[in-house]
Each structure stands twice: as structure tokens, then as C-alpha cells.
Amino acid sequence: MRPARAFYFLYYASLAALMPYLAIYFASRGLSGLEIGMLTSILPLVTMLGAPFWTEIADATGRHRTVLVSVIAVVLAAAFGLSLATHIVPLALLTALLAFHLAPAMPLLDHAVLEALGDRTHAYGRQRVWGAIGWAVAAPAAGWVTSTYGLPWAFYLFLAIMPWVAVVAMRVPFAASVGRRRIGGGLSLVLRDSRWIPFLLTGFAGGLGLAVVSYFLPLHLRDLGASYTLIGVAMAIPAISEIPFMVLGGLLLASVGSRRMLIVAVAMMALRLLLSGVITEPVPLALVQVLHGPSFGVLWIAGVAYARELAPQGSRAVAQGLFLAVTGGLGGFAGSLLGGVTYDALGGAGTFLVAAAFTALAAVLLAAWRPVPPVVAPDTADVPIG
């Protein structure tokens, strides 16, 4: 599993170098809060399309590694172009290209890891924790570099790390394909199970909250007078807070259960957003991001395990893609758009408070929801074509 751990580490290190500074980069191009919200909303919106699209192709053809390496190559090209763009139209097009090909990377790797673990899915967090470590190491370093040498270095760092992700991807072991099938068949099989409805609504709420924090916390900290170095530290704290929950994820799943973990995670996200809205000093605001671990960290551990549990054999990569599509895609899009609209009108504090109210309501509704037991249907996903 060393290639998978290396992939997690390098992939999240590359994201830590660039993603926290995208909104600030767009602002440096003279864009308004609404325009920044529109651009940042492209990332999750296109993720919603790209994750299930590419994972469905990978499952249907059995060429998971080929798909993974190919999309990373396009990501590099898109990021290079984005670093040179200055106007909103090319910025939007290149952001969409980046997001569409970045989207399947994590679902494909998570699928490979879960298949390799077999019945030991409780050990997933011990692999995924290397992503948190990669982010925790890279985020403060990227903050210092961008503070010292300027915002373009966020792109330079990303472009320096991501090629190594492609190299490691070539060594990630993928399980042998169980047989080809028509493209689109796996997604339809997954969605027959009614338990996906409350599950995906939980992911949507968590993704909305995470998007508001991820895209607008750096702007809010900047407005409060924080340096890029402090912003980098603030972006590292969430990754550090994930580590114990990733390591102990298996124990939490066994003792609490995935459904309860998902509801608690959304409630903790609401608390994180509430505190982010009422705290007005940069350092305490950065420190409260430690709640990322019991919020989104727990949501991801439980969500990945639950998606695999619900997925039919032969459609497990697309199940991971669907979870990401709704959590990081649809939820992220809603959070980005909400943040863009409210940031201009209410400022950073108001933005976080509005998002806190929504996620708190979602947690209450999801706790009261009792999903209908699924109707078992014949599994035709793995019937070979021709």
C-alpha cells in the first residue's frame, strides 16, 4: 500500500499549495465577490459531472489506472494555463477544465485502496491519513512561500508536485476488472437503492459547509489583517485535526455506526461555521478550524465506507465518484455560490452564519429521517458486453 500512501500525501500536498489561494488569486485579478463566487463555484459544479463520468468509464472499461494517469496529465496543462490567465472568461474555462479532470482522482484511489483492503475497510483511514499529513506539511510551507515570493508561487508549487502524483499513480495496484459492461449501467444500479437519498443529502450539507470555509475563510482572514503565512497555518490546522479521526476511523465505525457518524459530522460542521462567524480575531479564528476533524474528517471516513457498502460489485468506483460528486460537487457548488452572494452583502462573518444555519437545519432533518429499506434487484452490472 506504499504507492497509495504516497499518492495521498503528494496529491493533498499539491492541493494545499494552490486551493487555499485560488479565491485570493481571483481577487488579485480585480474580480468582485460575486465573480469570485462564480469562479469558485465552477470547481464543485464541474466536479459533480467529472467524478461520476470518469469513474463510470473506469468501471465500465476496467482501465482505472489509465484513466487516473490521463486525467492528471490534463490537470497539469489546465493549471499552467490558469496561472497565465487574466480575464474572467479564460479563468472560467480553465477552472472548469482543471476541475473536470481533477474530480476522479480521489474516488479512483479510494476504490483501489478499499478493494485492496477487502473486508478490512476499517483500515481505510490509516491509508487516507497520509493525505492529511501531506496537506498539513504543505499548507504552512505554501503560505510562507506565497507570502515571501507572491501568489504565482502557489501555481509553481502545484505544478512542481503534481507530476510526481502521476508517477506514483502508475504504481497504484488496481483490482482486476470483473468484466466490461455498458457505460452508464453502473450508475443506474447504484441509484436503485433508496438509502442513497439521505446519504447524499448528508454529503450535500457537509460539502456546502466545507466549500464556504475552504473558499471564503482565506478571504475573511485577509480582511481581518492576517498574513499569508497565518492563512497557510489556518489551512494546515484542519488537516492536522483529521489525523486522529483517520487513524481511529475503524473504531468509530464499529462503535458508533456510519449513519450516526454522518449526522454528527454535519452538526459539528454547523458549529465550526457558527464559531467562524462570531470570532473576529485572526488567530482564534484560525484555531477554531480544528473542528474540521470531527466534522468533515468524520464525514469522509463514514461516507467512503458507506458508499462501498451500498455499491453493487463492479460499480464501486462509480459509487465513490457519486459520493464525491454530491459532496464536493453539488454541495460545494451550493456553498461557493452561497458564499459569493453573501460575502458581498454580509461580509465574511455573515457568510459563515448563514451557512451555519443551513447545516444545522440539515443535521436536524437528517437525524429525523428514517430511510426505507432497499428493494433488492438483480445485479446485472457485471454481464460482459457482446
Results as ranks from 00 to 15, higher is better:
Phe333Ser: 04
Arg171Val: 03
Ala166Lys: 07
Val233Cys: 01
Gly207His: 01
Pro378Asp: 13
Val190Gln: 10
Val178Ile: 10
Ser147Asp: 15
Gln320Cys: 03
Ile197Cys: 09
Pro284Trp: 14
Ser295Arg: 15
Phe204Gly: 05
Tyr343Ile: 00
Val372Thr: 13
Pro198Asn: 11
Leu91Thr: 03
Trp130Met: 15
Leu22Val: 10
Thr280Ala: 12
Gly348Ile: 07
Pro312Val: 08
Tyr149Val: 05
Val264Asp: 00
Val290Cys: 08
Ala16Asp: 09
Ala286Leu: 05
Pro107Cys: 11
Phe358Trp: 11
Thr86Ala: 09
Gly250Ile: 07
Gly350His: 14
Phe53His: 09
Ala139Met: 11
Leu31Asn: 12
Val145Met: 08
Phe216Asn: 01
Ala349Trp: 03
Ala160Tyr: 03
Val145Thr: 13
Gly30Asn: 06
Ala175Cys: 01
Leu201Pro: 00
Gly207Tyr: 00
Ala205Asp: 11
Trp196Gly: 07
Ser188Arg: 15
Arg5Asn: 14
Ala166His: 11
Leu208Glu: 04
Ala142Val: 12
Leu366Ala: 01
Ala13Pro: 04
Leu230Trp: 07
Thr280Cys: 00
Ala355Leu: 13
Leu82Phe: 02
Ile240Phe: 14
Leu159Ser: 09
Ala317His: 04
Ser258Arg: 10
Val266Ala: 13
Thr66Glu: 14
Val71Ser: 06
Ala23His: 03
Met269Pro: 07
Gly347Phe: 15
Gly328Tyr: 04
Leu273Ser: 14
Ala13Asn: 03
Gly30Gln: 08
Glu242Gln: 12
Leu187Tyr: 07
Glu309Gln: 12
Leu97Val: 05
Glu56Met: 09
Met246Ser: 11
Ala319Trp: 00
Gln289Met: 06
Ala51Phe: 11
Ala105Tyr: 01
Thr55Arg: 07
Phe100Cys: 02
Leu191Asp: 06
Ile133Ala: 12
Val137Ile: 14
Arg370Asn: 13
Leu34Glu: 13
Gly134Ala: 05
Ala211Glu: 01
Ser188Gln: 14
Gly186Gln: 05
Phe204Met: 07
Thr280Met: 11
Leu365Pro: 12
Phe216Trp: 07
Val172Phe: 08
Met38Thr: 06
Arg370Lys: 12
Met38Arg: 06
Leu219Pro: 01
Val278Asn: 10
Met1Pro: 12
Gly277Thr: 10
Asp379Trp: 05
Val212Gly: 11
Arg5Val: 09
Ala176Gly: 13
Tyr343Gly: 04
Ala355Ile: 01
Ala16Gln: 10
Pro244Leu: 13
Ala325Glu: 01
Leu10Ala: 05
Thr202Glu: 00
Ala85His: 10
Ala73Phe: 14
Ala236Tyr: 08
Gly297Ile: 04
Pro384Thr: 08
Ala363Ile: 07
Leu31Glu: 06
Leu117Trp: 13
Leu93Lys: 03
Ile161Glu: 09
Arg120Pro: 00
Leu109Thr: 15
Trp300Phe: 08
Arg182Gln: 14
Ile197Val: 15
Val298Tyr: 04
Val318Tyr: 06
Val75Ala: 08
Gln289Asn: 15
Ile183Phe: 15
Thr342Pro: 02
Ile240Tyr: 10
Val372Glu: 08
Gly62Val: 10
Ile279Phe: 05
Val298Asn: 10
Ala27Trp: 07
Gly232Val: 12
